[in-house]
Simulated assay, not measured.
Amino acid sequence: MTQYNPLPLTFERLWQFSLQHYGVREIKEACLVLQNRHKGKVNLVLLLKWLDEHELSLSEQQWEQLDNAIERTETLLQQFRDYRRKAKPHLPDTLYRESLQFELQLERQQQSDLVHCINHLALSSRTSQPMTHLYCQKLGAPHLSAIFYKIEN
């Protein structure tokens, strides 16, 4: 198995990649279904899509390292997201928009944590299923993986 890292991934590169792909309706919907019904992590699946496009893969140990790298921000994101949803009917629009901006800052921090972690890993060339497919399977949502392929190819 060949070990290599593509050019170091920068936060800005992953953020732009994520905005581009999350802006595609089918990808956004699949990400939200993974998040809301299967406890998936949107930023992780977007990073996995980036790996897929570069034909890279992670070992189980590396997958764990990524999970650990975002554990703190994931907990904060889940708690804040739950709070924001409950508070939405009681908040003025301006305050609700501010809460969305704060959530976006947490998302950016999580992507920064992912970039920092991935740049310290020796990535392998993909030899089997794409990472997004494996993640969807792991979450019990294999039907969603086709959405990531369709957009990818």
Rank of each mutant, 00 (worst) to 15 (best):
L7T: 06
E12C: 08
E12F: 09
L14N: 08
L14I: 14
W15R: 13
Q20R: 06
H21E: 01
Y22M: 00
G23N: 10
V24M: 04
R25M: 05
E26V: 00
Q35D: 06
K39N: 04
K41H: 04
N43D: 00
V45T: 03
L46A: 01
L46D: 00
L48G: 00
L51V: 09
E53C: 05
H54C: 07
L56C: 08
S59K: 12
E60T: 12
E60N: 13
Q61S: 07
L66C: 07
L66G: 04
D67Q: 15
I70F: 11
R72G: 13
R72P: 11
T73M: 09
Q79H: 08
R85N: 05
K88T: 06
P89C: 07
L91Q: 10
P92A: 01
L95F: 10
Y96F: 12
S99F: 15
S99L: 15
Q101I: 05
F102S: 10
F102A: 05
F102L: 13
F102I: 14
L106E: 13
E107G: 12
R108Y: 02
Q110F: 04
Q110E: 12
L114T: 02
H116D: 10
N119A: 09
H120M: 07
L121W: 00
S124H: 14
S124L: 15
Q129K: 15
Q129I: 06
Q129T: 13
P130I: 13
P130W: 11
T132I: 10
H133C: 15
H133E: 03
L134K: 12
Y135M: 10
C136D: 03
L139S: 08
L139R: 02
P142K: 15
S145D: 09
F148S: 06
I151A: 07
E152P: 01
N153K: 12
